[in-house]
Nucleic acid binder design. Structure first.
Lengths: 235, 235
DNA sequence: TCCCCATTGTAGCCGGTGCTACAGAGTCGC
DNA sequence: GCGACTCTGTAGCACCGGCTACAATGGGGA
């Protein structure tokens, strides 16, 4: 089946043109339904640094990530920024629309060139009603998100900064990493500042912690990516 | 419709005998399907302090809370205990079963007399397939759980302990509180120790923080429940 | 090539929390 | 009423990590 998404992707884009339909969450969705779905979905490409929606804006679309990587972050009242989650192809973004009207409580950033299909809640609801299978897939996906948030909470609660940084890198690697000859490598760069948003610590303290982690060989940095050496198994 | 749950609840129990079917997540579920569902669901009452399942045990049932209150907690490698979430009637417990086989990563405690219906994943899946509406409700419910976990993360990341304690009390009150003449009151008692599991801090530090919160009138304790005074609105 | 800006690295001070220890207060059962 | 237990409150010390300030490094654009 020719995918109309192809037309959207710029020639020189690193974004794969795999169709949304190929995402695992759409397995089993009926072809006719999918055609209809495709008709109502708004396909878009976001470049690095662009936002899908911003904190405080009116809740609108639900996005399915087709390719790329999204960072969800929030600015708190006191001005602190915090990174809540990273999302990858096959994940939803903006699922808050399922539970309430109002405004987005967070901002979704494209971390790299990212392709999405956006849907109105009502349309998405309809598709789920017509394809209960899809509902089940989403439930599975969201249950994973909950597990991953649980880990984040655990992590925040316990131990010293060095351990916390290490564990968060492990968690990210398990979801967004690739096995290499040297160990698990995180597929996107992370600055000390971004890590500080992730663990809720001061940037300088992150630098200190990373210095120790690197001197003990628990973390390597190469080609601007973090690598966790060893025959390290996910969670 | 006579609810077979009635037979299960002890005479002197404070647990309401409202039927599972009356829970909002089952709105719109077809009567016949529900009959079938009821046949396969295992109804149980847990007394205060009993566990629905324990961390490390094999993943089995998914529970729907009919009445009562559940605390989800986890013991970390270093021995620290952390409270991940509270769940109330209408919520699921054990939804990790939707995303993976294996072992429960946490323990579910009954905080008071609690009535549940437990289902095997395969049965629950079937019900969802037959009642896409139910799937949609679950998606909404899980999306709320994600939002609430996001708030927990926010909270953990920012500010001093006093603020963190205050914010977590606010969050709990908004989900598990009742409006009274003095303000929002949390419907179950919380010891300083439990609060320390919630915010990931030392028990003694919690006592210190609460002392300040009470002296400034931001928090009241009465009848062993915390009350947040003022015309305080959720979130 | 050179400059600019983002990122990383180092140092020093100090405040908030962790931790231990122990003393009051409250609650339950006998 | 008494003992046992749990929970709350107070004190003091130690130390991690927040914070400021500034230097070094490195990559990208004009």
């Amino acid at each position: 089946m020719k995918c109309s998404c192809d037309d959207l992707v710029p020639r020189d884009s690193p974004v794969s043109s795999a169709c949304v339909k190929d995402l695992t969450i759409f397995d089993g969705v009926d072809d006719d339904d999918f055609e209809r779905f495709r008709g109502i979905g708004v396909r878009r490409v976001f470049r690095h640094g662009e936002t899908l929606f911003v904190q405080g804006g009116p809740i609108g679309e639900i996005f399915v990530i087709k390719a790329g990587r999204i960072r969800l972050s929030k600015v708190l009242e006191d001005g602190t920024e915090i990174t809540l989650d990273f999302r990858k192809p096959g994940d939803l973004v903006g699922e808050e629309a399922f539970s309430r009207p109002g405004n987005y409580p967070l901002t979704a950033w494209a971390m790299e060139e990212t392709m999405t299909c956006g849907f109105r809640v009502s349309d998405f609801n309809r598709l789920i009603l017509d394809n209960p299978d899809l509902g089940l897939k989403l439930i599975g996906n969201m249950s994973q998100r909950i597990l991953s948030l649980n880990s984040r909470l655990e992590n925040a609660a316990s131990g010293n900064l060095e351990d916390r940084v290490f564990r968060i890198l492990s968690a990210i690697a398990s979801e967004h990493g690739r096995k290499t000859s040297k160990g698990y490598s995180i597929t996107f760069p992370l600055t000390h500042e971004e890590l500080s948003y992730l663990v809720g610590a001061h940037r300088v303290s992150i630098t200190r912690a990373l210095k120790r982690l690197r001197s003990t060989g628990k973390v390597i940095k190469e080609d601007n990516r973090f690598i966790l050496p060893g025959d390290w198994t996910a969670e």
